[in-house]
Computed example of a mutant assay.
Amino acid sequence: MFAVVRTGGKQYRVAAGDKIAVEKLSGEAGDTVTLGDVLLAGEGDSIADASKVAVSAEIIAQAKSEKVIVFKKRRRHNYRRKAGHRQQLTLLRILSVGDSKAPAKKTAAPKEEAAPAAETKAAPEKKAPAKKAAPAKAAAEKAPAETKAAEKKAAPAKKAAEKKPAAKKAPAAKAADKK
């Protein structure tokens, strides 16, 4: 059985056992994903109801595609720009194309690192309250700031220097006056 699925804005014709590279999907290698947007499904020459078909796939790896070089140039203007880009891809192995009623594995197995993170969040709550030395330090820091503000008020305001008008040049003698 085959199916046409849409993912990452592109359409792919897949069958069980196929390997495809699609736009990046969330998940790690070994996770199982379900491609839900099935556009067409069929067996040989016959076409099945696409709404009843589900496609499950396993993530093989997260990778990058080949580098694409972007080079812009405007001749005779000393304008050159060179940039490169590598698109992130997910490599998938299609596990099954079949009925959506069939049990499919959900994505992303639970992470082992999540449990220690919960313990570390609980630990800071049990700590003793912070010492009251910090407010005194904050008050000490405010005092110099207040004195600076007072100095600004007491100092006379400086005026910007007035610009002098440019010196006038004598008009050039005309050819008629020379005669």
Score class of each variant (00 low, 15 high):
K169S: 12
P171E: 14
L95A: 05
P124H: 12
E113R: 11
A149V: 07
A170K: 01
E119Y: 02
K163D: 13
A170H: 01
P165G: 04
A170P: 01
A155F: 03
A145P: 02
A155G: 07
K174Q: 13
E125T: 04
K101Q: 13
A134M: 15
A172K: 15
Q88W: 05
R93I: 01
A104T: 07
E141L: 04
K163S: 07
T90A: 00
E112A: 15
L92S: 03
E151Q: 12
T147C: 01
K126A: 13
P171F: 00
A143Y: 07
K174F: 06
A143C: 03
L91T: 07
P165A: 05
K127T: 11
K164G: 05
V97D: 01
A102F: 03
K174G: 13
K142H: 06
K105E: 13
G98D: 02
A104S: 14
A140S: 07
K158C: 02
K121F: 03
Q88D: 13
A109D: 08
A157W: 00
A140H: 12
E119Q: 11
A150P: 03
K159D: 00
A133H: 08
P124E: 13
A108H: 09
T147V: 12
V97W: 05
K174H: 07
K126M: 10
P116D: 06
L91G: 00
P144Y: 03
A150T: 05
E113V: 06
A123K: 15
E162M: 11
P171A: 14
P135R: 03
A172E: 09
A170N: 04
K127D: 15
A128E: 13
A150K: 15
A109F: 05
I94T: 07
A138V: 06
T120W: 08
P124A: 11
A166T: 14
E162P: 04
P156Y: 02
K101E: 12
E162A: 14
A173N: 01
L92D: 05
T90V: 04
P156Q: 02
A115S: 09
K142M: 03
I94W: 06
A167Y: 05
P110C: 00
S96G: 09
E146P: 01
K169D: 05
K106V: 10
A108W: 04
K159E: 12
P110W: 03
P124G: 03
K168V: 12
E119S: 12
K131F: 05
A166Q: 14
A139F: 03
T147N: 14
A166K: 15
K121T: 11
T90M: 06
E112T: 06
E151A: 11
E146L: 11
P103Q: 10
A155C: 03
A108P: 02
P156D: 10
A109N: 12
T147H: 14
A134W: 14
K111I: 09
A173T: 07
K137A: 07
E162Q: 09
A130Y: 05
S100Q: 08
A139W: 08
P129T: 08
A104K: 15
A133W: 09
E125A: 15
